[in-house]
Nucleic acid binder design. Structure first.
Lengths: 235, 235
DNA sequence: TTCGAGAATAGAACGCTGTTCGATAAGGTA
DNA sequence: TACCTTATCGAACAGCGTTCTATTCTCGAA
Protein backbone atom coordinates (compact mmCIF):
# COMPACT_ATOMS: atom_id res chain seq x y z
CA UNK A 1 0.00 0.00 0.00
CA UNK A 2 1.39 3.33 -0.97
CA UNK A 3 -0.90 5.35 1.27
CA UNK A 4 0.77 7.36 4.05
CA UNK A 5 -1.64 5.96 6.60
CA UNK A 6 1.01 4.64 8.95
CA UNK A 7 2.35 6.51 11.93
CA UNK A 8 0.40 8.16 14.73
CA UNK A 9 -2.67 10.07 13.64
CA UNK A 10 -3.11 13.58 14.92
CA UNK A 11 -6.47 14.37 16.43
CA UNK A 12 -8.89 16.68 14.67
CA UNK A 13 -11.04 18.91 16.81
CA UNK A 14 -13.64 21.59 16.44
CA UNK A 15 -15.26 24.06 18.78
CA UNK A 16 -18.48 22.06 18.71
CA UNK A 17 -16.64 18.86 19.64
CA UNK A 18 -14.80 20.54 22.49
CA UNK A 19 -17.96 22.05 23.97
CA UNK A 20 -19.95 18.89 23.34
CA UNK A 21 -17.48 16.58 25.03
CA UNK A 22 -17.15 19.01 27.91
CA UNK A 23 -20.91 18.95 28.44
CA UNK A 24 -20.94 15.16 28.22
CA UNK A 25 -18.15 14.93 30.77
CA UNK A 26 -19.95 17.31 33.12
CA UNK A 27 -23.24 15.47 32.80
CA UNK A 28 -21.75 12.03 33.24
CA UNK A 29 -19.30 12.56 36.04
CA UNK A 30 -19.98 15.93 37.59
CA UNK A 31 -18.17 19.20 37.76
CA UNK A 32 -15.05 17.82 39.38
CA UNK A 33 -14.49 15.51 36.45
CA UNK A 34 -14.02 18.27 33.91
CA UNK A 35 -10.27 18.70 33.61
CA UNK A 36 -8.34 19.66 30.53
CA UNK A 37 -6.48 16.38 30.67
CA UNK A 38 -9.65 14.29 30.89
CA UNK A 39 -11.24 16.35 28.15
CA UNK A 40 -8.18 15.99 25.93
CA UNK A 41 -8.11 12.23 26.27
CA UNK A 42 -11.81 12.11 25.42
CA UNK A 43 -11.08 14.10 22.32
CA UNK A 44 -8.14 11.87 21.56
CA UNK A 45 -5.68 14.72 21.47
CA UNK A 46 -3.28 16.76 23.54
CA UNK A 47 -4.08 19.06 26.40
CA UNK A 48 -2.75 22.23 24.86
CA UNK A 49 -4.86 21.84 21.74
CA UNK A 50 -7.98 22.76 23.65
CA UNK A 51 -6.58 26.24 24.11
CA UNK A 52 -6.80 26.77 20.40
CA UNK A 53 -10.59 26.84 20.70
CA UNK A 54 -11.03 28.20 24.18
CA UNK A 55 -8.84 30.60 26.10
CA UNK A 56 -9.54 29.41 29.63
CA UNK A 57 -11.62 27.02 31.68
CA UNK A 58 -13.94 29.88 32.57
CA UNK A 59 -14.68 30.44 28.92
CA UNK A 60 -15.18 26.72 28.42
CA UNK A 61 -17.80 26.63 31.17
CA UNK A 62 -19.48 29.78 29.90
CA UNK A 63 -19.73 28.33 26.42
CA UNK A 64 -20.96 24.99 27.71
CA UNK A 65 -23.64 26.69 29.76
CA UNK A 66 -24.68 28.86 26.86
CA UNK A 67 -24.91 25.82 24.60
CA UNK A 68 -27.25 24.06 27.01
CA UNK A 69 -29.38 27.19 27.11
CA UNK A 70 -29.50 27.23 23.31
CA UNK A 71 -30.82 23.68 23.31
CA UNK A 72 -33.31 24.60 25.99
CA UNK A 73 -34.56 27.55 23.97
CA UNK A 74 -34.98 25.43 20.85
CA UNK A 75 -36.82 22.74 22.73
CA UNK A 76 -39.22 25.18 24.37
CA UNK A 77 -39.52 27.51 21.41
CA UNK A 78 -43.17 26.89 20.79
CA UNK A 79 -44.42 26.20 24.24
CA UNK A 80 -48.20 26.62 24.16
CA UNK A 81 -48.44 30.16 25.39
CA UNK A 82 -51.33 30.19 27.80
CA UNK A 83 -53.92 32.89 27.82
CA UNK A 84 -53.14 33.62 31.44
CA UNK A 85 -49.78 35.39 31.81
CA UNK A 86 -49.14 33.61 35.08
CA UNK A 87 -49.80 30.23 33.51
CA UNK A 88 -47.36 31.10 30.74
CA UNK A 89 -44.80 32.24 33.28
CA UNK A 90 -45.27 29.01 35.16
CA UNK A 91 -44.76 26.91 32.05
CA UNK A 92 -41.54 28.69 31.19
CA UNK A 93 -40.19 28.54 34.72
CA UNK A 94 -40.93 24.84 35.10
CA UNK A 95 -39.34 24.06 31.74
CA UNK A 96 -36.24 26.04 32.67
CA UNK A 97 -35.99 24.36 36.03
CA UNK A 98 -36.32 20.90 34.54
CA UNK A 99 -33.60 21.55 32.00
CA UNK A 100 -31.22 22.93 34.58
CA UNK A 101 -31.81 19.87 36.70
CA UNK A 102 -30.66 17.71 33.82
CA UNK A 103 -27.34 19.58 33.96
CA UNK A 104 -26.86 20.30 37.65
CA UNK A 105 -23.48 21.96 37.14
CA UNK A 106 -24.77 24.84 35.03
CA UNK A 107 -26.90 26.67 37.58
CA UNK A 108 -23.87 28.34 39.11
CA UNK A 109 -22.73 29.76 35.80
CA UNK A 110 -26.01 31.06 34.46
CA UNK A 111 -25.96 34.08 36.72
CA UNK A 112 -22.30 34.90 36.35
CA UNK A 113 -21.76 36.84 33.22
CA UNK A 114 -24.60 37.81 30.96
CA UNK A 115 -22.23 38.97 28.25
CA UNK A 116 -20.43 35.67 27.99
CA UNK A 117 -23.74 33.83 27.68
CA UNK A 118 -25.82 35.74 25.17
CA UNK A 119 -28.63 33.21 25.06
CA UNK A 120 -29.31 33.36 28.76
CA UNK A 121 -30.58 36.85 28.08
CA UNK A 122 -33.17 35.44 25.72
CA UNK A 123 -34.47 33.14 28.44
CA UNK A 124 -34.80 36.14 30.72
CA UNK A 125 -36.60 38.03 28.01
CA UNK A 126 -39.15 35.26 27.59
CA UNK A 127 -39.98 35.22 31.27
CA UNK A 128 -40.11 38.99 31.28
CA UNK A 129 -42.55 39.17 28.40
CA UNK A 130 -45.04 37.06 30.33
CA UNK A 131 -44.74 39.31 33.35
CA UNK A 132 -45.13 42.39 31.17
CA UNK A 133 -48.63 41.22 30.35
CA UNK A 134 -49.55 41.91 33.97
CA UNK A 135 -49.20 45.64 33.26
CA UNK A 136 -47.26 46.50 36.34
CA UNK A 137 -44.68 49.26 36.73
CA UNK A 138 -41.22 48.64 35.26
CA UNK A 139 -39.88 48.30 38.77
CA UNK A 140 -42.44 45.73 39.87
CA UNK A 141 -41.97 43.88 36.61
CA UNK A 142 -38.23 43.78 37.16
CA UNK A 143 -38.63 42.59 40.74
CA UNK A 144 -41.08 39.88 39.77
CA UNK A 145 -38.83 38.45 37.07
CA UNK A 146 -35.83 38.62 39.37
CA UNK A 147 -37.75 36.76 42.07
CA UNK A 148 -38.84 33.96 39.76
CA UNK A 149 -35.39 33.68 38.26
CA UNK A 150 -33.67 33.73 41.63
CA UNK A 151 -35.97 31.03 42.87
CA UNK A 152 -35.59 28.84 39.80
CA UNK A 153 -31.83 29.01 39.61
CA UNK A 154 -31.27 29.12 43.34
CA UNK A 155 -33.39 26.06 43.96
CA UNK A 156 -31.74 24.25 41.08
CA UNK A 157 -28.32 24.99 42.53
CA UNK A 158 -29.35 23.87 45.98
CA UNK A 159 -30.77 20.60 44.74
CA UNK A 160 -27.91 20.02 42.32
CA UNK A 161 -25.11 20.07 44.86
CA UNK A 162 -22.66 17.23 44.56
CA UNK A 163 -22.76 15.05 47.66
CA UNK A 164 -19.62 15.53 49.78
CA UNK A 165 -17.93 12.34 48.65
CA UNK A 166 -20.21 10.11 50.68
CA UNK A 167 -21.44 6.63 49.93
CA UNK A 168 -23.00 6.63 46.50
CA UNK A 169 -22.69 3.05 45.45
CA UNK A 170 -25.91 1.41 44.38
CA UNK A 171 -28.85 2.96 42.61
CA UNK A 172 -31.84 3.96 44.67
CA UNK A 173 -29.16 5.33 46.92
CA UNK A 174 -30.99 8.60 47.14
CA UNK A 175 -33.64 7.15 49.39
CA UNK A 176 -31.10 5.73 51.79
CA UNK A 177 -29.35 9.09 51.81
CA UNK A 178 -32.53 10.87 52.79
CA UNK A 179 -33.23 8.17 55.33
CA UNK A 180 -29.80 8.67 56.86
CA UNK A 181 -30.55 12.33 57.38
CA UNK A 182 -33.94 11.52 58.81
CA UNK A 183 -32.30 9.14 61.25
CA UNK A 184 -30.13 11.94 62.59
CA UNK A 185 -33.08 14.28 62.84
CA UNK A 186 -35.26 11.86 64.68
CA UNK A 187 -32.61 11.80 67.37
CA UNK A 188 -33.09 15.52 67.98
CA UNK A 189 -35.10 16.66 70.96
CA UNK A 190 -38.74 17.03 69.83
CA UNK A 191 -39.23 19.80 72.38
CA UNK A 192 -36.46 21.91 70.89
CA UNK A 193 -37.11 20.98 67.26
CA UNK A 194 -40.86 20.75 66.78
CA UNK A 195 -40.68 21.85 63.15
CA UNK A 196 -38.07 19.30 62.19
CA UNK A 197 -40.12 16.56 63.74
CA UNK A 198 -43.26 17.78 62.03
CA UNK A 199 -41.75 17.50 58.57
CA UNK A 200 -39.37 14.54 58.89
CA UNK A 201 -41.74 12.16 57.21
CA UNK A 202 -42.49 14.68 54.47
CA UNK A 203 -38.79 15.08 53.89
CA UNK A 204 -38.20 11.39 53.48
CA UNK A 205 -39.21 10.45 49.98
CA UNK A 206 -40.02 13.99 48.96
CA UNK A 207 -39.87 14.88 45.28
CA UNK A 208 -37.64 17.78 44.32
CA UNK A 209 -39.81 18.70 41.36
CA UNK A 210 -42.99 18.81 43.45
CA UNK A 211 -41.19 20.87 46.06
CA UNK A 212 -40.05 23.31 43.40
CA UNK A 213 -43.51 23.67 41.89
CA UNK A 214 -45.05 24.31 45.29
CA UNK A 215 -42.61 27.14 45.94
CA UNK A 216 -43.08 28.56 42.47
CA UNK A 217 -46.84 28.57 42.95
CA UNK A 218 -46.41 30.58 46.13
CA UNK A 219 -44.55 33.26 44.18
CA UNK A 220 -47.10 33.22 41.37
CA UNK A 221 -49.98 33.44 43.82
CA UNK A 222 -48.34 36.43 45.45
CA UNK A 223 -47.74 37.92 42.05
CA UNK A 224 -51.37 37.53 41.08
CA UNK A 225 -52.46 39.32 44.24
CA UNK A 226 -49.89 42.08 43.93
CA UNK A 227 -50.56 42.76 40.27
CA UNK A 228 -54.30 42.90 40.83
CA UNK A 229 -53.99 45.26 43.78
CA UNK A 230 -52.05 48.45 44.31
CA UNK A 231 -50.08 49.54 41.22
CA UNK A 232 -46.54 49.57 42.58
CA UNK A 233 -46.41 51.02 46.07
CA UNK A 234 -42.91 52.14 47.02
CA UNK A 235 -41.11 49.44 49.01
CA UNK B 1 21.13 35.87 79.10
CA UNK B 2 20.47 32.33 80.19
CA UNK B 3 16.99 32.19 78.71
CA UNK B 4 16.38 29.68 75.96
CA UNK B 5 14.61 32.30 73.88
CA UNK B 6 16.87 32.01 70.90
CA UNK B 7 16.12 29.87 67.87
CA UNK B 8 12.96 29.86 65.80
CA UNK B 9 9.70 29.97 67.73
CA UNK B 10 7.08 27.41 66.90
CA UNK B 11 3.60 28.68 66.24
CA UNK B 12 0.73 27.86 68.60
CA UNK B 13 -2.67 27.34 67.05
CA UNK B 14 -6.17 26.41 68.08
CA UNK B 15 -9.28 25.33 66.26
CA UNK B 16 -10.86 28.71 66.92
CA UNK B 17 -7.86 30.52 65.47
CA UNK B 18 -7.82 28.34 62.36
CA UNK B 19 -11.53 28.82 61.69
CA UNK B 20 -11.39 32.50 62.57
CA UNK B 21 -8.49 33.28 60.27
CA UNK B 22 -10.11 31.25 57.51
CA UNK B 23 -13.28 33.32 57.80
CA UNK B 24 -11.27 36.53 57.83
CA UNK B 25 -9.39 35.45 54.73
CA UNK B 26 -12.61 34.54 52.93
CA UNK B 27 -14.29 37.79 53.87
CA UNK B 28 -11.35 39.98 52.95
CA UNK B 29 -10.22 38.44 49.70
CA UNK B 30 -12.89 36.04 48.53
CA UNK B 31 -13.12 32.33 48.14
CA UNK B 32 -10.17 32.00 45.81
CA UNK B 33 -7.88 33.48 48.43
CA UNK B 34 -8.39 30.69 50.94
CA UNK B 35 -5.44 28.37 50.45
CA UNK B 36 -3.73 26.31 53.11
CA UNK B 37 -0.50 28.15 52.43
CA UNK B 38 -2.07 31.59 52.77
CA UNK B 39 -3.88 30.47 55.89
CA UNK B 40 -0.71 29.02 57.38
CA UNK B 41 1.26 32.20 56.85
CA UNK B 42 -1.55 34.18 58.48
CA UNK B 43 -1.35 31.87 61.45
CA UNK B 44 2.42 32.18 61.46
CA UNK B 45 2.96 28.46 61.16
CA UNK B 46 3.45 25.63 58.74
CA UNK B 47 0.99 24.30 56.20
CA UNK B 48 0.75 20.80 57.56
CA UNK B 49 -0.15 22.00 61.06
CA UNK B 50 -3.61 22.98 59.89
CA UNK B 51 -4.37 19.33 59.29
CA UNK B 52 -4.06 18.72 63.00
CA UNK B 53 -7.29 20.66 63.51
CA UNK B 54 -9.09 19.98 60.28
CA UNK B 55 -8.93 16.96 58.06
CA UNK B 56 -9.63 18.58 54.70
CA UNK B 57 -10.54 21.83 53.04
CA UNK B 58 -14.14 20.69 52.82
CA UNK B 59 -14.28 20.32 56.58
CA UNK B 60 -12.63 23.71 56.99
CA UNK B 61 -15.32 25.36 54.88
CA UNK B 62 -18.09 23.46 56.64
CA UNK B 63 -16.78 24.58 60.02
CA UNK B 64 -16.32 28.16 58.84
CA UNK B 65 -19.87 28.25 57.52
CA UNK B 66 -21.25 26.76 60.69
CA UNK B 67 -19.34 29.30 62.78
CA UNK B 68 -20.86 32.18 60.84
CA UNK B 69 -24.28 30.64 61.38
CA UNK B 70 -23.57 30.41 65.11
CA UNK B 71 -22.79 34.12 65.19
CA UNK B 72 -25.91 34.83 63.18
CA UNK B 73 -28.05 32.84 65.60
CA UNK B 74 -26.61 34.65 68.59
CA UNK B 75 -27.11 38.02 67.02
CA UNK B 76 -30.72 37.32 66.08
CA UNK B 77 -31.57 35.30 69.17
CA UNK B 78 -34.10 37.72 70.52
CA UNK B 79 -35.52 39.18 67.39
CA UNK B 80 -38.80 40.84 68.32
CA UNK B 81 -41.13 38.03 67.41
CA UNK B 82 -44.06 39.67 65.71
CA UNK B 83 -47.63 38.70 66.45
CA UNK B 84 -48.14 37.91 62.78
CA UNK B 85 -46.37 34.67 61.80
CA UNK B 86 -45.64 36.05 58.36
CA UNK B 87 -44.07 39.17 59.83
CA UNK B 88 -41.93 36.98 62.05
CA UNK B 89 -40.95 34.84 59.09
CA UNK B 90 -40.07 37.94 57.16
CA UNK B 91 -37.85 39.26 59.93
CA UNK B 92 -35.95 36.01 60.18
CA UNK B 93 -35.54 35.66 56.44
CA UNK B 94 -34.28 39.21 56.01
CA UNK B 95 -31.83 38.83 58.88
CA UNK B 96 -30.52 35.58 57.42
CA UNK B 97 -30.17 37.10 53.97
CA UNK B 98 -28.31 40.12 55.29
CA UNK B 99 -25.85 37.98 57.22
CA UNK B 100 -25.19 35.73 54.25
CA UNK B 101 -24.52 38.79 52.12
CA UNK B 102 -21.82 39.82 54.58
CA UNK B 103 -20.08 36.52 53.82
CA UNK B 104 -20.86 35.88 50.16
CA UNK B 105 -18.83 32.69 50.04
CA UNK B 106 -20.93 30.77 52.53
CA UNK B 107 -24.21 30.50 50.63
CA UNK B 108 -22.90 27.61 48.57
CA UNK B 109 -22.00 25.58 51.62
CA UNK B 110 -25.12 26.10 53.71
CA UNK B 111 -27.15 23.63 51.68
CA UNK B 112 -24.49 21.02 51.28
CA UNK B 113 -24.37 18.84 54.33
CA UNK B 114 -26.74 19.37 57.22
CA UNK B 115 -24.80 16.96 59.41
CA UNK B 116 -21.54 18.82 59.06
CA UNK B 117 -23.22 22.09 59.96
CA UNK B 118 -25.40 21.38 62.97
CA UNK B 119 -26.35 24.99 63.56
CA UNK B 120 -27.81 25.48 60.12
CA UNK B 121 -30.53 23.13 61.27
CA UNK B 122 -31.40 25.52 64.07
CA UNK B 123 -31.86 28.33 61.58
CA UNK B 124 -34.21 26.11 59.59
CA UNK B 125 -36.08 25.26 62.75
CA UNK B 126 -36.65 28.92 63.57
CA UNK B 127 -38.11 29.64 60.16
CA UNK B 128 -40.22 26.51 60.41
CA UNK B 129 -41.68 27.46 63.76
CA UNK B 130 -43.04 30.66 62.31
CA UNK B 131 -44.63 28.81 59.43
CA UNK B 132 -46.11 26.26 61.83
CA UNK B 133 -48.20 29.02 63.34
CA UNK B 134 -50.09 29.15 60.04
CA UNK B 135 -51.61 25.76 60.89
CA UNK B 136 -51.13 24.20 57.51
CA UNK B 137 -50.53 20.54 56.74
CA UNK B 138 -47.03 19.16 57.37
CA UNK B 139 -46.53 18.96 53.63
CA UNK B 140 -47.53 22.55 52.97
CA UNK B 141 -45.45 23.68 55.93
CA UNK B 142 -42.46 21.83 54.57
CA UNK B 143 -42.94 23.28 51.11
CA UNK B 144 -43.32 26.81 52.43
CA UNK B 145 -40.13 26.67 54.47
CA UNK B 146 -38.25 25.11 51.57
CA UNK B 147 -39.44 27.85 49.27
CA UNK B 148 -38.37 30.66 51.56
CA UNK B 149 -35.05 29.01 52.26
CA UNK B 150 -34.39 28.28 48.63
CA UNK B 151 -35.15 31.84 47.73
CA UNK B 152 -33.01 33.32 50.51
CA UNK B 153 -29.95 31.21 49.88
CA UNK B 154 -30.36 31.05 46.13
CA UNK B 155 -30.64 34.79 45.79
CA UNK B 156 -27.71 35.28 48.14
CA UNK B 157 -25.59 32.96 46.01
CA UNK B 158 -26.62 34.67 42.80
CA UNK B 159 -25.81 38.10 44.10
CA UNK B 160 -22.62 36.97 45.80
CA UNK B 161 -20.87 35.64 42.72
CA UNK B 162 -17.31 36.77 42.31
CA UNK B 163 -16.94 38.85 39.17
CA UNK B 164 -15.10 36.93 36.43
CA UNK B 165 -11.77 38.67 36.97
CA UNK B 166 -12.89 41.91 35.36
CA UNK B 167 -11.90 45.45 36.14
CA UNK B 168 -12.49 46.06 39.82
CA UNK B 169 -10.13 48.88 40.58
CA UNK B 170 -11.70 51.89 42.21
CA UNK B 171 -14.58 51.96 44.66
CA UNK B 172 -17.98 52.83 43.31
CA UNK B 173 -16.99 50.45 40.61
CA UNK B 174 -20.24 48.58 41.02
CA UNK B 175 -22.16 51.34 39.30
CA UNK B 176 -19.84 51.36 36.34
CA UNK B 177 -20.16 47.60 36.15
CA UNK B 178 -23.92 47.79 36.01
CA UNK B 179 -23.64 50.61 33.52
CA UNK B 180 -21.43 48.50 31.31
CA UNK B 181 -24.08 45.80 31.20
CA UNK B 182 -26.76 48.36 30.50
CA UNK B 183 -24.70 49.65 27.61
CA UNK B 184 -24.67 46.23 26.01
CA UNK B 185 -28.37 45.78 26.56
CA UNK B 186 -29.32 49.12 25.08
CA UNK B 187 -27.69 47.95 21.88
CA UNK B 188 -30.18 45.07 21.64
CA UNK B 189 -33.08 45.34 19.26
CA UNK B 190 -36.02 46.88 21.18
CA UNK B 191 -38.42 44.93 18.98
CA UNK B 192 -36.92 41.62 19.96
CA UNK B 193 -36.19 42.50 23.56
CA UNK B 194 -39.05 44.63 24.85
CA UNK B 195 -38.67 43.37 28.42
CA UNK B 196 -34.95 44.09 28.61
CA UNK B 197 -35.56 47.61 27.37
CA UNK B 198 -38.41 48.11 29.81
CA UNK B 199 -36.25 47.36 32.83
CA UNK B 200 -32.82 48.64 31.81
CA UNK B 201 -33.16 51.80 33.81
CA UNK B 202 -34.49 49.88 36.80
CA UNK B 203 -31.53 47.57 36.58
CA UNK B 204 -29.02 50.38 36.63
CA UNK B 205 -28.59 51.48 40.21
CA UNK B 206 -30.89 48.79 41.59
CA UNK B 207 -30.43 47.75 45.21
CA UNK B 208 -29.90 44.07 45.84
CA UNK B 209 -31.52 44.24 49.25
CA UNK B 210 -34.63 45.95 47.92
CA UNK B 211 -34.82 43.41 45.12
CA UNK B 212 -34.58 40.57 47.61
CA UNK B 213 -37.27 41.99 49.86
CA UNK B 214 -39.62 42.46 46.93
CA UNK B 215 -39.25 38.83 45.95
CA UNK B 216 -39.61 37.65 49.52
CA UNK B 217 -42.82 39.63 49.87
CA UNK B 218 -44.21 37.89 46.82
CA UNK B 219 -43.67 34.54 48.48
CA UNK B 220 -45.14 35.75 51.76
CA UNK B 221 -48.15 37.20 50.03
CA UNK B 222 -48.74 33.91 48.28
CA UNK B 223 -48.29 32.11 51.55
CA UNK B 224 -50.86 34.30 53.23
CA UNK B 225 -53.38 33.54 50.51
CA UNK B 226 -52.65 29.83 50.42
CA UNK B 227 -52.77 29.36 54.17
CA UNK B 228 -56.04 31.27 54.48
CA UNK B 229 -57.66 29.36 51.65
CA UNK B 230 -57.87 25.68 50.85
CA UNK B 231 -56.19 23.47 53.48
CA UNK B 232 -53.56 21.74 51.36
CA UNK B 233 -55.03 20.68 48.08
CA UNK B 234 -53.04 17.90 46.46
CA UNK B 235 -51.03 19.56 43.71
C1' DT C 1 7.76 22.23 -7.97
C1' DT C 2 9.15 24.93 -4.38
C1' DC C 3 8.35 28.08 -0.89
C1' DG C 4 6.25 30.25 2.90
C1' DA C 5 2.44 31.62 5.78
C1' DG C 6 -1.02 30.42 8.58
C1' DA C 7 -4.00 27.01 10.97
C1' DA C 8 -3.95 23.32 14.01
C1' DT C 9 -1.80 20.01 17.06
C1' DA C 10 0.87 18.61 20.90
C1' DG C 11 4.99 17.48 24.37
C1' DA C 12 7.08 19.43 28.11
C1' DA C 13 7.48 22.46 31.56
C1' DC C 14 5.89 26.07 35.23
C1' DG C 15 3.67 27.54 39.30
C1' DC C 16 0.07 26.60 42.21
C1' DT C 17 -3.06 23.63 44.74
C1' DG C 18 -4.69 20.07 48.52
C1' DT C 19 -2.73 16.42 50.87
C1' DT C 20 0.60 12.99 53.05
C1' DC C 21 4.86 11.43 55.30
C1' DG C 22 8.24 11.41 58.51
C1' DA C 23 10.97 13.90 61.65
C1' DT C 24 11.04 16.75 65.59
C1' DA C 25 10.03 18.99 69.68
C1' DA C 26 7.39 19.86 74.17
C1' DG C 27 4.62 18.29 78.37
C1' DG C 28 3.19 15.07 81.56
C1' DT C 29 3.41 10.59 83.89
C1' DA C 30 5.62 6.27 85.69
C1' DT D 1 15.44 8.21 82.69
C1' DA D 2 12.15 6.34 79.70
C1' DC D 3 7.93 6.79 77.29
C1' DC D 4 3.51 8.02 75.30
C1' DT D 5 0.57 11.71 73.64
C1' DT D 6 -0.02 16.24 71.67
C1' DA D 7 1.46 19.45 68.53
C1' DT D 8 4.31 21.40 64.89
C1' DC D 9 6.43 21.64 60.39
C1' DG D 10 9.74 20.91 56.15
C1' DA D 11 9.68 18.40 52.27
C1' DA D 12 7.73 15.88 48.92
C1' DC D 13 3.75 14.12 45.68
C1' DA D 14 0.18 14.04 42.38
C1' DG D 15 -2.94 16.76 40.00
C1' DC D 16 -4.58 21.10 38.30
C1' DG D 17 -4.87 25.25 34.73
C1' DT D 18 -1.90 27.47 31.82
C1' DT D 19 2.10 28.75 28.74
C1' DC D 20 6.06 27.99 25.73
C1' DT D 21 7.86 26.15 21.94
C1' DA D 22 8.21 22.96 18.33
C1' DT D 23 6.05 20.36 14.91
C1' DT D 24 2.97 18.98 11.30
C1' DC D 25 -0.51 19.84 7.77
C1' DT D 26 -2.88 22.59 4.02
C1' DC D 27 -2.97 25.54 0.43
C1' DG D 28 -2.23 29.47 -2.54
C1' DA D 29 1.56 32.24 -4.68
C1' DA D 30 5.80 32.39 -7.09
Amino acid sequence: MAGASQGRRRAVHSLEAVIGEAIALLDEAGEGALTFRALASRLGGGVASIYWYVSSKDELLDRATDQVVVDHLERTEDLPRAADPLAGLRELAVALFDDIRLHPWMGKYMMRDAEAQPHVMIAYERLGEQVMRLDMSPRDTFHAVSAVLGFVIGTAIDLGQEPPAGADLAAGDRDSGLEAYAETWRALDPEKFPYIHLIIEEFVGHDDAVQFRAGLDLILEGLRRTSAGEPGADD
